[in-house]
Design a protein around this nucleic acid. Structure first.
Length: 259
DNA sequence: ATGGTTGGGTTCCAA
């Protein structure tokens, strides 16, 4: 089972590039972030015609997550528990029925800038809620993948220029500690485990020629429960996608599980 | 050196 995460930065803007990548990469499951669309406006037929089941959790203008799956889905749930007043669409879960059942969550973690401030407070509160949900899901002791745009640079080697990110919400000590508190529940960062070599990034800003200078950061992650890590066969980052026409500022990151 | 670019909305915000 190949599971990919991809922040597409707008489904309307990626309506040509996304099907091209799906056809060549052939993920069984694609977890999308920043669809920037309400559910009713998501062009689901394009993906259904390619053989995908489509589940969206959208909102107007910003945020929004979705799951595309060639395998059957069940028990789909939308929204991160823990705050009934939170209206931002950043979390979706489903169980994927492959040779083994795998629970997946697609997430778009708040950016948090500027820090300090209310947006940073929201980021940290959201991460505390995510940790609680992750702990609940781990208790099932089944294969579980939490994948998406974490808006977290976990370590200095995950940035080409870590000095440029000092003071940014993606790299502040509080943000990285909150990420470690989730990791320390027992997750494996798939890319860190299999590809510890430096220079593997998943995001390059549109500005200042970041892609041409390889001034990137690794902020899109797939976290595996122990039961999912047991099944890890391969993983990678499709960096070449960033160099194509009309790219997102993120690229797909994926794992292959024996499931 | 605090630049510049994209997307989705609307005359600006988020990233």
């Amino acid at each position: 089972m190949k599971i990919a995460t991809f922040n597409i930065n707008g489904i309307k803007a990626r309506i040509e590039a996304l099907p091209v990548w799906l056809a060549e990469a052939r993920p069984d499951v694609a977890l999308l972030q920043e669809i920037k669309s309400v559910d009713e406006a998501f062009p689901r037929e394009i993906f259904e015609d390619m053989g995908f089941a489509v589940e969206t959790h959208g909102q107007k203008g910003f945020n929004g997550v979705a799951i595309l799956s060639r395998l059957p889905l069940e028990d789909v749930s939308r929204g991160l528990p823990g705050d009934a007043t939170d209206e931002q669409a950043r979390w979706i879960e489903a169980t994927v029925l492959g040779r083994r059942a795998v629970r997946v969550a697609g997430l778009y973690l708040p950016n948090g800038n500027p820090a300090p401030g209310p947006k940073f407070d929201y980021k940290l509160a959201w991460m505390a809620r995510m940790r609680a949900r992750a702990a609940d899901l781990l208790a099932a002791e089944l294969p579980l993948v939490l994948a998406g745009d974490y808006n977290i640079i976990p370590q200095p080697e995950d940035a080409a220029r870590p000095d440029a990110w000092v003071g940014d919400a993606l790299f502040l000590p509080e943000s990285r500690a909150a990420f470690r508190r989730i990791m320390n529940l027992g997750f494996t960062d798939a890319i860190r485990a299999r590809h510890p070599e430096p220079g593997l990034y998943s995001f390059w800003d549109y500005q200042a020629g970041a892609w041409d200078r390889n001034n990137g950061i690794r902020i899109d992650h797939l976290l595996l429960s122990p039961q999912a890590a047991d099944l890890l066969a391969d993983c990678g980052i499709d960096q070449d996608v960033r160099g194509r026409d009309k790219p997102s500022d993120h690229v797909p990151v994926w794992v292959e599980l024996d499931a």
